[in-house]
Design a protein around this nucleic acid. Structure first.
Lengths: 395, 395
DNA sequence: TAGAAAAATTATCGCGCGTAAAATTTATAT
DNA sequence: ATATAAATTTTACGCGCGATAATTTTTCTA
């Protein structure tokens, strides 16, 4: 057998005795050409899985009305809101449901209801575990509250964000939880969207757009990290992207400058090149350039966000710059977000943690109020949750 | 102003002069109690955004038939398949569409069509950027092919995986791209599901279930990493979870043992404790225990997957164990997957890369064939793509 | 220009459920 | 027991579109 280094093309390989698979690998036509060997395809003819032990499969509410002995309009009321029918009839319905496992056709329901139970959840970049975690939290809340959430990611692209809004209109959602891209967003289109669909913005604010905003208090993040760094050592420089994707970055820079001045230090903002959402790589390249030159104005760096810090720490390691708070280290690094991976960086990252839990809970709760209020809140509110400083080894 | 260390509770904070937000922070009742100050809520009365410059908003296909001068059945055909009508009428329809921006009601369409254009994409753990990337790739393919993908994450929980299948049945999807949890999956329930809904499994195989499987060739991964490590230094130990979440892990262990024996070395499998999907933490704790004791049988470790390796590298750093291939290092670490973060570990991680692109492309293409074939393929195929060795600094 | 084939039109039904109004039953209070 | 309110049932219609059959129109071929 022949093993080759990465980058080379052809690769032939034979697998285990039982289930043999031969793959002829050709980067150019890999899909069309890959040969396959099959198993015995024992697939029974199509047929929807039988649910409970019902003899005859119920097709619609009419039939279920017959077998349950409840009229269809009452059943309709029940499925709309189980508490809206008398407890005795509710019991009868639920008893019948255990026998026949009927479920209303979601398409027919959505077509006819004035308001669906759909909720759209839109995040700017799902490959960022931070958003994946928030999204999961929001999903769970929505389901618990009896809604049907659908998850969308803009993946850093305006075009996708627009498509998502387009697709969302068609779903006539009861409400939308929307974390915009930020700088890359088409502001006026989002404004239009928010006027048509009850929307709560989160994570990244667009002034005046949407019925409410829930996010983190960027000043709280930066003030804590700056205060900590200055109190325990030299005041930090601020490390960020030249053209940040997110408005939070601007608020963090402003907060940094404000805090430094308040504490009587000279602010020093380091801006690195780079576009898009590959923050780690941008942070890494920027840091290599910066630290490779060797002229660092301070021995402490505060990164605008953890993903930049992850890249920066990677660069430090590569350059042999020891990071941490012990004497052997020449640089301290702190950051903001408490990214899921920040505890596994080398060294582990001191950072200001988002209050994930409260941001998502409050976002969901606000949306529910909005929906119950008929699509409008008495006033547009902005709710910011403060950060929690997490001390680890990097500073 | 008073700054406090992490963990303490109360935190009062006042923000910028213009948009003042006061947040009284109380971990126990944070949500209910947080006070808010509002902006001028200038929200125009509800109304769906006007699309193109149409005078009257078209409500349904009937009305669009009138304004476009095309009969409704023809329009129906067009929206079902634009190529199914004469080019001249197609032009007329599309001209009218630019004037009136009508779009068929998706619920009515789905209710009446025998087959919807819905596609479900199910991944086991979306907070893993690996799956987020694959999911994005699959989404894009589906959209390009004219389908409507919906993304679901089981988040490592069987209960959620079951709920997703339940919810998916109701959507009557044309097909489903399904990456099961693996060990935690309810095998028989997935089997039932796959008999009712045309499904292509990917990433994690369940023998005989689904119409096809597309994944990576685990033997190819491990054989390359083992071969590389042995050729350039000492043969590696194999580092994995005692009870892996995923069947791929078992195949990798078997491949490791097989390769070692083939090369004439004694296999050495290190199994660390831990349940669930927090692989990094499990890897870290396991490595701290293992390396803290100091009795490492080899100076090379091959991790079952990158997320374990990320935890292991973090432990090495903490313990002051230098990892890499230069002389100053005492340990070499390699792994499998090419996780998006593996290039930012310290040191950067040598790993066998998934062929993301081909796995997702082939998965999507197989599903489309399956759908066009009426829900069944002539035979159940398993397609595995080999890995590509990525040499970085850790080994 | 005739004839056949293709496409579009008209007309009508069905999908599964929401919803409204009127008639009937049931629960609660006097 | 009786009056009253509340819940339920009956009846009927509407939602927006897919699908079909029968007819008419258009287009293609010779």
């Amino acid at each position: 057998m022949n093993f080759r280094r990465a980058g080379e093309a052809a690769f032939v390989y034979v697998s285990f005795p039982n289930k043999v698979l031969i793959i002829q690998f050709d980067f150019l036509r890999a899909i069309r050409n890959c040969k396959k060997v099959t198993e015995d395809g024992s697939n029974s003819p199509l047929g929807w899985g039988s649910g409970a032990m019902s003899k005859t499969q119920i097709k619609n509410m009419e039939e279920f009305a017959v077998v349950s002995g409840i009229s269809r309009p009452t059943l309709s009321k029940y499925f709309n809101d189980p508490a809206s029918v008398r407890v005795s009839t509710r019991a009868r319905i639920e008893a019948a449901l255990e026998q026949h496992d009927y479920r209303p056709n979601i398409f027919a329901v959505n077509q006819n209801r004035k308001l669906t139970k759909n909720i759209g959840i839109v995040v700017p970049y799902l490959a960022d575990p931070f958003f994946a975690e928030i999204a999961r939290n929001l999903e769970e809340r929505c389901i618990q509250a009896g809604y049907r959430p659908t998850l969308y990611s803009s993946h850093g692209e305006q075009k996708l964000e627009l498509e998502i809004m387009d697709s969302l209109r068609g779903l006539r959602p009861a409400g939308v939880l929307f974390a915009p891209l930020g700088r890359a967003s088409d502001r006026s289109e989002i404004e239009k969207f928010c006027k048509a669909v009850p929307t709560v913005l989160f994570d990244s604010n667009l002034d005046g757009i949407g019925e409410a905003f829930i996010g983190s208090d960027n000043f709280s993040f930066v003030s804590q990290t700056v205060e900590y760094l200055t109190r325990t050592g030299e005041p930090p420089s601020f490390f960020e992207m030249k053209t940040p994707a997110n408005p939070n970055a601007n608020k963090r820079r402003i907060a940094y400058i404000q805090m430094m001045e308040r504490l009587g230090f000279e602010p020093n903002v380091i801006k690195v090149e780079g576009q898009g959402w590959a923050f780690e790589e941008i942070g890494r390249q920027g840091a290599l350039k910066l630290l490779g030159a060797g002229n660092l104005p301070t021995n402490a760096i505060l990164c605008s966000n953890d993903r930049l810090a992850i890249g920066l720490l990677s660069a430090c390691y590569q350059l042999g710059i020891r990071v941490g708070r012990d004497k052997s280290a020449s640089l301290r690094v702190a950051s903001n977000d408490d990214h899921p991976f920040s505890r596994f960086t080398c060294p582990s990252l001191t950072t200001a943690a988002h209050d994930y839990e409260n941001v998502s809970n409050k976002s969901a709760e606000t949306l529910f109020q909005l929906i119950e209020g008929g699509g409008h809140l008495p006033e547009r509110t902005e709710t910011l949750f403060p950060a929690r400083l997490v001390l680890r080894d990097s500073a």
